[in-house]
Computed example of a mutant assay.
Amino acid sequence: MTASRPVVFIHGLWLHASSWQPWVDLFREHGYDPVAPGWPREAATVVEARERADDVANISIDEAVDHYAAVIAGLETPPVVIGHSFGGLITEKLLGQGHGAAGVAIDPAQIKGVLPLPLAQLRSALPALGNPANLHRAVSLTREQFRFAFGNALPEQESDALHEQWAIPSPARPLFQAAAANFVMHSQAAVDTANADRGPLLLISGTADHTVPDVVTRSTFKQYRDSTAVTELRQFEGRGHSLTIDHGWREVADATLTWLLGQGL
């Protein structure tokens, strides 16, 4: 492992960048140089992000990808890129474009070419997709909506506490883009899954996830069948979409560190 290898953490919709802090601390302890930048125009704190929801309205997938590509370009060494949910999709796009030494996509949002669309996934996205006018808006989740989308595998009290601690308004546009990806020729949710020159990629899935069900991640894994680059899948039984922030986050983080060590990173 390169002692000073940078790591870029990318969060998904409805969580603030600071939700990665336990991971940042752990990876720093293991000799990495981690950062967790927010999405474009994301406020520095959860409180500010809730007060300034309109700042992030209408951000697209490509705008977020370009934002993180610029972060990576400013680093002296190609980083490991670790993303959750839409951050996972962004991780896949960045790696396919040649940014980063390796990628870990945790419960990654649906990319172009993935066909399964389970009912639980549709229900999780309904707060945004249920109103076409949300396309150019920022949308928040209620505690109940968060509990279904993120905390369904947790006690209600823990899910509500996570909502209070980390949940912020997020742009709805990426959800609309992903939902329409298979009907749009040049969709921003498309990933270069055939790239054989990219770094290794680990896909992680929680088998109880409502927002990105396990069948979706398994289908994403199959999209990489034409690439000879290292692509692996790790499933966590009974875990939901909150697996990066709930009481079991360390298990996922330790598995990620072990995999990176196995890749010589």
Rank of each mutant, 00 (worst) to 15 (best):
M1P: 11
T2K: 13
F9A: 01
W14R: 01
H16M: 09
A17V: 00
W20H: 02
D25R: 11
L26T: 08
H30A: 03
G31E: 13
P37A: 04
G38Q: 08
P40M: 09
P40L: 05
R41S: 07
R41M: 08
E42H: 14
A44H: 07
A44C: 06
V46H: 02
R52A: 09
V56M: 03
D62R: 07
V65K: 00
H67W: 07
A69N: 11
A69W: 08
V71P: 08
A73M: 11
G74A: 10
E76Q: 14
E76Y: 05
T77W: 05
P78V: 04
V80R: 01
G83Q: 02
F86W: 11
G88K: 01
T91M: 00
K93F: 12
L95P: 02
Q97L: 15
Q97M: 14
G98I: 06
G98Y: 04
G100T: 07
G103C: 07
V104A: 07
V104K: 03
A105C: 11
A105G: 08
I106M: 04
P108W: 01
Q110K: 13
G113I: 10
G113R: 06
P116V: 12
P118G: 06
S124C: 09
P127E: 08
L129E: 10
N131Y: 08
L135I: 12
H136T: 15
R137Y: 10
R137E: 15
A138T: 10
V139E: 01
R143G: 15
E144S: 14
E144M: 08
R147V: 08
G151V: 11
A153M: 05
L154W: 01
E156I: 13
S159E: 02
A161K: 03
L162M: 03
L162E: 00
H163I: 10
E164L: 14
Q165H: 13
W166M: 10
A167P: 02
P174I: 07
P174T: 09
A178R: 00
A179V: 05
F183H: 12
F183A: 14
F183D: 12
F183N: 12
M185D: 13
A189S: 13
N195I: 12
A196Y: 10
D197Y: 14
L201N: 02
L202Q: 05
T207P: 03
A208N: 12
A208F: 12
V212Q: 05
V216N: 02
Y224A: 00
R225W: 12
D226V: 03
S227Q: 09
S227W: 07
L233R: 07
G238Q: 14
R239E: 09
G240Q: 01
G240N: 12
H241S: 06
S242K: 00
W249E: 00
A255F: 03
A255W: 04
A255H: 09
T256R: 10
T258Y: 06
W259E: 07
L260G: 01
